[in-house]
Nucleic acid binder design. Structure first.
Lengths: 204, 204
DNA sequence: GTCTATACTCGGATAGAC
DNA sequence: GTCTATCCGAGTATAGAC
């Protein structure tokens, strides 16, 4: 008889704890003790499972950054009209960010502070996610369906408007006086307002 | 006779070195040794001038974040038409960011990782920079001069598009294959493309 | 596999000579 | 004011008992 899997193995607990601590504090700021505490074990056991802090970090980080970048591919690749694609992209991406609010800051941080490691160890086999998107823009522009625009700028605009609020959240909350719930509602709204804003700008 | 000021006092050198190291590595990642090296002195002297790492950091950070937020006020407060204001804002802000490319990531990081300290020590007397802007949008909307839009979303869109490229630079450069010069040219272009993009969207 | 105890290292901070 | 030498805490990593 197959044993019913109790899913919270020690390894699972460690990975979960490590993810939250690393994403929140970054590699330099994270403490093995915090990870151990959060996992309900001691430091020694961390090293038993994952040789070193560096190794543990890479494990977490690869998975996290894969999520950050790969979710997009399916949507960008889909064979649907451009405007629908923009709507789907913003909506799906913001949903993902709502579930992983610390992800972008963490990824961009490591890319900035340890560019070598990022490029070599953490940035393997990434798709050129916006190339197909760029072609699509160029084609629509040529067909005179939308106003002429540089695809790179449009793409940058779109991801900026989706991601930045999550990075700037604490400052935004302080300066607007929003609380957690209001902020959540605000970014929920953005699933609609961003595509609207973009499409208004592109429409002839 | 007034003594000619030789401007590179030790204190100046320390502050300059500390600024670049802190902005690049963040509080947790920065090393006093690196700051000392870059300033051409030794660690002991750092402590002679600025009691502790924490103190030095706060000094640098307050000044830096003041720059980050206060440059905006003058532009937002100016008594000129809305569209001109948007153009001026993007242009001036991107110029400032070109001169301080690490600033936003650093500020937003500390706000995220040490929210208490940020709110208490580093976020003193900040203006509610976007309140006047919001009123102006509301007024233009009522006068039916522009399409109706929530000022909070518009403001967030604008700062997102200006700031985010600087935060995402390393990832963007890797995934597009841009080099330093191309990236610089790209954000220079954005001084024009962002206002265009916004104004196209707002225009009736 | 999991723990306690401890070794080792790095880096912030201080003492004291000049 | 500036240096060398040193201290000491924090935090990663390991040894070894259970």
């Amino acid at each position: 008889m197959v044993k019913i899997q109790k899913q919270d193995t020690t390894e699972q607990k460690i990975l979960g704890a490590a993810k939250s601590v690393f994403l929140e504090k970054g590699m330099a700021g994270a403490r093995m003790q915090d990870i151990a505490d959060k996992a309900g074990i001691n430091k020694a056991l961390l090293h038993y499972y994952f040789k070193s802090k560096e190794k543990l970090f890479e494990m977490i980080f690869k998975e996290a950054s894969a999520l950050f970048f790969s979710k997009i591919n399916g949507i960008i690749d889909a064979d649907i009209p451009l405007f629908d694609k923009i709507e789907n992209f913003c909506s799906a991406y913001i949903d993902m960010l709502l579930q992983n609010p610390y992800l972008p800051l963490s990824v961009l941080n490591e890319a900035t502070k340890q560019p070598q490691r990022f490029k070599q160890k953490l940035w393997k086999n990434r798709e050129q996610i916006f190339i197909k998107f760029a072609h699509e823009i160029a084609s629509e522009t040529q067909k005179r369906k939308i106003k002429s625009i540089d695809p790179a700028h449009l793409f940058m605009n779109m991801i900026s408007m989706c991601i930045f609020p999550f990075i700037a959240r604490p400052v935004w909350m302080i300066s607007t006086g929003m609380d957690e719930n209001e902020f959540r509602a605000f970014v929920e709204e953005r699933k609609k307002t961003i595509p609207q804003f973009i499409i208004e700008s592109l429409n002839k």
